[in-house]
Design a protein around this nucleic acid. Structure first.
Lengths: 163, 163
DNA sequence: CCTCTTCCCATGAATTCCCATGAAATGGCA
DNA sequence: TGCCATTTCATGGGAATTCATGGGAAGAGG
């Protein structure tokens, strides 16, 4: 898996009363260079109380990869089961949402709940995918390195929302 | 990892009111020989109060290396977490910035803060990557060899900014 | 007929692009 | 080997564009 275009950088955007959020332009750029969709796929993150997001082209790639693993004969029964579940999660438990001409998506209510997202959305590039966090949950999570929290704090300050 | 083109040399450039800095031409040359991007990736340096910079191709290489590591390792919970953390640091804590036709980048405010960079930026080639320092911090740092500081002093004098 | 959603327009701030300049470096040519 | 002509660089300033965000109108569904 060597994707040419990787998601990186961070941004903190507002979620308005209608549940709309701007997807940062630098992330949209990657999405549009990877494929030509103006769409993102949202899913609950495996291990964090946040959302995982990526472009449809990446979703297709992941699907193909899982398929290949399933077809391998050496794959053990338990591994098979795990792949099945992953596949189920990746597709059934995800939603594809388009962004409009100004780059905004409407956060589907279920995703908003699963990601614990309120009035602010913290976008974090992680290479192949990116994450969307409620900044408060991010700052609370023990597993998040302190240096990363600094970034979140910086983004909050930038908006005049003191740490 | 044997990159053909290495970053070397030093330069001291001004940061203007808009946060713009010229990336020295000799560094841009290396970037463009390594790939064809006109873009650099900035990150806080691991151990110094400075920025670390490189080209997107190098970033992709690093990413691929991490991926390979993960696939070898057991997918234990701790290994997974470590992977997540590294990915966050490597991508969310970095920013990719393009340089314009005159070779300038805009230092993102967050990076400027993290690198402690004010009105002057000291560029130092270090082979696979290069560093960007606030020259005063560079001269203050105990870990920097005296010979290196001489280079910084020379660059400052060159500009009539006596040490 | 009412509600929820999608589309469209408005706006201020931030960012990018373009042009201009002088200094320095390079190259050519005598 | 010395001098002049070009080109490349770093840098400034202003104009034009993009971005994030708010609000309202139009449309779909119950």
């Amino acid at each position: 898996m060597a994707l040419e275009h990787l998601f990186q950088g961070s941004a903190l955007n507002a979620v308005d009363a209608k549940g709309r959020v701007s997807v940062p332009a630098f992330l949209r750029g990657v999405i549009e260079r990877r494929g030509d969709a103006r769409t993102i796929v949202l899913a609950k993150h495996d291990s964090f109380p946040a959302l995982s997001a990526y472009d449809p082209a990446y979703a297709a790639l992941m699907h193909a990869k899982l398929e290949r693993l399933l077809e391998k004969e050496e794959t053990s029964a338990t591994a098979q089961l795990e792949y099945q579940q992953r596949n189920l999660m990746a597709f059934a438990a995800s939603e594809e949402v388009p962004y409009d001409s100004s780059g905004r998506i409407v956060l589907p209510p279920m995703m908003r709940r699963k990601g614990g997202i309120e009035e602010l959305a913290l976008f974090l590039g992680t290479g192949e995918t990116f994450q969307i966090w409620n900044p408060s949950l991010f700052l609370k999570d023990d597993r998040v390195p302190e240096d990363m929290k600094d970034i979140a704090r910086y983004r909050l300050e930038e908006r005049g929302l003191g740490a």
